[in-house]
Design a protein around this nucleic acid. Structure first.
Lengths: 139, 139
DNA sequence: AACTTAAGTATTAAAATGGAAACTGTTACT
DNA sequence: AGTAACAGTTTCCATTTTAATACTTAAGTT
């Protein structure tokens, strides 16, 4: 069973007030959730970040193997964006064949710590979601 | 500056080991991140969840006003999915004109708590991301 | 009689995204 | 000469997503 106390709800409300309170809900001011999160909380980005947390250094093809299902195009796009936003570094060694290594920056690690909270929740509550989904479909 | 200690990295590694350790990285087993998170960490879903955390009860058009930019179609789709997965409830009052109210379930609240960790991070580090992005573009 | 409201559904067209597979470039091996 | 490895990029096509607008239902208001 879910146990969410009123106290916890209050804490959440307080945090949300802090987040939303100063934003004029009518005008379209800059919103980090639409901008920052939209990229970094996408399915592929999450998996890339997690694998780069698990293995300190990864090369393109290894990453592609772990994040199975991703295409070359999307992987290289996501890597470029994550690099651009400062979550990871791309180091190229001009050997032959060329070697390119990806690893998290400290900034990326700082994000990963928070991300992990969410994925842990998802991992441990995934079955509940599936159950809910099934119940909803038959209802 | 980012301050990520080795100790913190160790903790993250431990958590990741717990998450990934038992998964055969080669075969495609069920993955809650691809399934559960993909829906619930999407840009629109996040905003919907946050606003429903901020306002305990919201109706369709209010929600649409807050989550500006979302279309009727997408909003109603997302609401249906979030309801199906158990994050929120939809209550219909057969008045005229009809009234429909959305609110978070306890399950949804439990997710929101974790989500908030991430959005708080994004809110406070958004400017760093923008800075990184700019630097990368000009480099 | 026409207008308004609420919560969507339907429609259409435009835009973005996604996947599959071919291609690039260099070097080493067979 | 042909093939393989690496790390992508590029191209083409199909699907998905998005925006914008119109429509629905049914009672109450002007």
């Amino acid at each position: 069973m879910e146990t969410v106390t009123d106290n916890q709800k209050l804490k959440v409300a307080k945090k949300l007030k802090k987040m939303f309170g100063h934003i004029d809900l009518k005008t379209e001011t800059y919103c980090p959730i639409r901008d920052v999160m939209a990229l970094a909380s996408d399915k592929w980005s999450i998996l890339i970040m997690l694998y780069l947390g698990y293995f300190p250094v990864l090369r393109f093809n290894k990453l592609k193997k772990y994040v199975y299902g991703i295409s070359n195009k999307v992987l290289s796009e996501r890597l470029k964006m994550l690099e651009s936003d400062g979550y990871l570094t791309r180091t190229m060694y001009p050997e032959v064949p060329i070697r390119v290594e990806y690893q998290l920056t400290n900034f990326g690690h700082s994000y990963l710590r928070k991300l992990l909270e969410l994925t842990e929740w998802a991992t441990s509550h995934g079955d509940t979601v599936i159950k809910n989904r099934k119940k909803f479909k038959t209802a």
